[in-house]
Nucleic acid binder design. Structure first.
Ligand SMILES: [Mn+2]
Ligand SMILES: [Mn+2]
Ligand SMILES: [Zn+2]
Ligand SMILES: [Zn+2]
Lengths: 153, 153
DNA sequence: GCTGGAACTGAAAATCTTTTTCACTAAGGC
DNA sequence: GCCTTAGTGAAAAAGATTTTCAGTTCCAGC
């Protein structure tokens, strides 16, 4: 498993390669994202980042998220109650497993049995499928255990 | 296949059962949704509905969408460029097939080979999966044909 | 059919979120 | 270290959604 520091370094390099500058505000935003246990909204990112760098502007958070999204190192999470929370993205195509109780998110892949199903659907409908969005919502092991306990009393 | 009128009637009944009133503004919003070829934003719904009922307030569109979403007769579509377009939902659990060119959307179901895959994932991760969001994005047959034609000259 | 009262409506204002503008700052190649 | 230019933060603007409120309309009960 990759350390936080290594990923920060990696993201910084990606920004530089892309012709961008690695500034202090950007570094702080990246750190907050990398340390988060759950997806965070721009507002939440700003609040947390200001604990370390109080003069940070919310505008810069938005701009940094744009950059990171372009570089595909962060991903947006879609939920019924709002779709503007961001998560570090491991490279490549991934799906998301979300805990509805604690908010924890987990990426997974290597699961493209989905591909066979998509092929079937293409044959049946005439549609050409290019990409997909798959998110599973439920309970993480920890929250599931806690809820079962609660039921007992 | 169910007619538009029949579905309007059905939605109205659902509202009444739920203790709500079937008012003229609500009926107009429902009609617009039922006639749409693509998912529509609240703003778009309002514009179209005003052609028939000019005094309609945008607020009422928001409120009506809330009601219809609660009754699960409309569904929100999630896209990278925004997640606030609404679509009539056929009852039960469904997935979405979206055309990235013309915007047309198509629900599909009866496809829960996905269930087997979810069971595997639960075993592997310890997560308990309760619901999921699956949207496939690509080209509808019509748009695919047109694009291929365009390539030729 | 009327009527009374609660549900619903639209305008305006308030609130939130995101984008734009602009004068100033600081990365980082030289 | 210096220079250029990308990036920054404050403020304002633009957009989206929610709240408030006085007036209207639906419809259950007569
Ligand atoms: Mn996939
Ligand atoms: Mn399904
Ligand atoms: Zn979404
Ligand atoms: Zn199409």
């Amino acid at each position: 498993m990759e350390t936080k520091g290594a990923r920060l370094e990696e993201w910084s390099q990606r920004i530089a390669e892309h012709g961008g500058r690695v500034t202090r505000p950007r570094r702080v935003v990246m750190q907050v994202l990398l340390e988060a246990e759950t997806p965070l909204s721009p507002q939440e990112i700003c609040t947390r980042a200001r604990r370390r760098y109080p003069s940070l502007g919310l505008v810069t958070v938005y701009r940094t998220l744009d950059v990171l999204e372009t570089l595909a190192v962060v991903r947006r999470v879609h939920r019924e109650d709002g779709c503007h929370a961001y998560l570090p993205a491991t490279p490549g195509h991934h799906h998301l497993l979300l805990c509805r109780r604690c908010g924890r998110a987990m990426e997974f892949s290597g699961w493209d049995a989905l591909d066979g199903l998509i092929a079937e659907l293409e044959a049946a409908t005439g549609y050409r499928v290019e990409e997909h969005l798959l998110q599973l919502i439920g309970l993480c092991p920890r929250c599931y255990a806690q809820l079962k306990e609660g039921e007992r009393g």
